[in-house]
Design a protein around this nucleic acid. Structure first.
Length: 466
RNA sequence: GGCUCUAUCGUCUAAUGGUUAGGACGGCGCCCUCUCACGGCGCAAAUCGGGGUUCGAAUCCCCGUAGAGUCACCA
């Protein structure tokens, strides 16, 4: 055991729902914490009042809870810690490493546009004022970068990373509205909360020198950084984003995906354990997870593989678990009628094998695939003979014989016992001649489960009636 | 434009200087079979290009190319 316990965090801003990109970062931070018996913190970065969307904090928590990504501390809201940021800012002021920005917003905007026109990166420090007065809180407070230099640092995933001097600038610590910026607040928090490992998206590589300069100025040791690869949309090469139609992670619950399947899929998107196992339980993932094996390059989100994994996880469910899950997920959405639910409860063991999402059984039932569970069925006499490869007269004899056998069949009357009783006879006179008509007689449908399964589902009385 | 990151089958990836470049999804084919699924077996499919270093390079170095990120009183 290392002397310092592992502390990781997931720190979303409450600007709406969580999509797979955010969830994957959360998942890796969570897996790492669980793997090392550490602490996982949920922190809400709500320092931009303009962009905040009401209800997102609850929505984010519901998303994480659905996936089983439980947090040990939080949610901690940055908006409730303004005094803390102010106190840390004061430390910098006392050291002469922070100063009020004397310019107006439009003046700074002007600087920026000039830089852009000259095709140069915008650097506020080129306009750093020679002297400033004391900070009264009405102006933004800026960090005074003590030394302009190149930075090189270690990233657990990427290895050695570097950045040019252009990446370093006098960024804003506290905005004129009194709220800290992300750049400042997240560092103060990571220090105060003892965060040891920071998992984050690659958009933060470019601003890392600013963070490192700030850690130095505060006399603090930076945490370990682990940069996650991007998740790209299914089409194109763009980073997955809400703008490009990335879905709310909770939509996948509605669509009948299991949280275990989603976690399994997301874990394998940008990470791969040793060995060739693909289907993992959450516990297995925790055991196998190694952050060093996270991928550097971006990965496309492939819904077909998610579908396959979901099927694999559904197959691993017991019949009872499957039935219960279907009823909670689909029933909760009010998509199913009592009659349909009754049909489902009678046939769910058959459905489990062939369904990839919890929504598919509903679609099949609604499409009438299982109407044969009702009291009456109707079908074409021609259909009865179509696949039978036998004369009508023979088929009548076969079916009569089948009825006779089943009438005298000992309990239990199940798919297995029916098969045992009928199969030898069917093989003797020609399977197609017996089994096809039997299946049609029982289901009324060209496409349906095999006749033994049908008989087992329907029971002796209904089977004989048909 | 500056700075920076990335690059193996269509997709997710394995191979930490020596393999016929492996697996999975998807695709295709065959088998199972009374149909549809499920399942089983098999096939096609990749080291971005060019230079080095080395006996030997997907792997290390350089130059291209392509894609991505970033340069906010957003996070």
């Amino acid at each position: 055991m290392s002397p310092n316990p592992v502390v990781t965090r997931f720190a979303p801003s409450p600007t709406g729902f969580l999509h797979v990109g955010g969830v994957r970062t959360a998942l890796f931070a969570w897996l790492y914490a669980r793997k090392h018996h550490g602490t996982f913190i949920l922190r809400i970065e709500d320092t931009d009042k303009e962009r905040e969307v009401a209800g997102s904090i609850e929505h984010i928590q519901e998303s994480l809870t659905w996936l089983g990504l439980t947090w040990d501390q939080g949610p901690i809201k940055q908006s409730e810690r303004l005094d803390t940021y102010r106190a840390w800012a004061q430390k910098l002021i006392d050291k002469g490493l922070a100063y009020p920005d004397p310019y107006t917003e439009s003046e700074v905007e002007q600087f920026r546009q000039e830089a852009e026109a000259q095709k140069k990166p915008f650097l506020y420090r080129d306009h750093r004022p020679a002297t400033t007065g004391a900070w009264d809180g009405t102006k933004p407070l800026r960090f005074k970068v003590p030394e302009i230099k190149r930075y090189t640092w270690q990233d657990i995933v990427r290895g050695e990373l570097t950045a040019g001097e252009e990446a370093l600038d006098d960024f804003i610590l506290i905005k004129s509205d009194g709220y800290p910026t992300y750049n400042f607040a997240h560092i103060v928090d990571d220090i105060e909360m003892g965060v040891t490992h920071v998992m984050r998206g690659e958009e933060f590589i470019a601003s890392t020198p600013k963070f490192l300069a700030l850690y130095e100025a505060l006399g603090e040791t930076p945490p370990h950084f682990a940069t996650m690869p991007v998740i790209l949309g299914p089409d194109g090469h763009k980073k997955l984003s809400k703008r490009d139609g990335a879905k709310d992670i909770l939509d996948y619950r509605k669509e009948g995906y299991l949280p275990e399947a989603m976690v399994n899929f997301l874990a394998l998107l940008g990470w791969h354990p040793e060995g060739e196992q693909e289907v993992f339980s959450v516990d297995e993932l925790i055991k196998a997870f190694e952050i060093e094996r996270v991928q550097k390059g971006g990965a496309k989100f492939d819904e077909a593989k998610l579908l396959w994994l979901n099927h694999e996880h559904i197959k691993r469910l017991s019949d009872e678990q499957f039935a219960k899950l279907f009823e909670t997920v689909i029933g909760k959405q009010g998509l199913i009628s009592p009659t349909e639910l009754r049909i489902f409860s009678q046939i769910h063991s058959v459905l489990k094998e062939r369904t990839r999402t919890l929504l598919e059984p509903l679609e099949l039932i609604k499409a009438g695939e299982f109407d044969f569970m009702g009291d009456t069925i109707s079908y074409d006499k021609e259909l009865l003979l179509q696949g039978a490869k036998a004369e009508a007269g023979d088929v009548a004899i076969y079916l009569a014989r089948v009825a006779e056998i089943l009438e005298h069949l000992d309990e239990p009357f199940t798919a297995e016992s029916v098969k045992e009783a009928i199969f030898p006879y069917a093989t003797e006179v020609g399977r197609a001649g017996v089994l096809w008509p039997m299946r049609i007689a029982l289901s009324g449908k060209e496409k349906s489960p095999d006749p033994f399964t049908l008989a087992g589902l329907l029971g002796r009385d209904k089977t004989l009636a048909r």
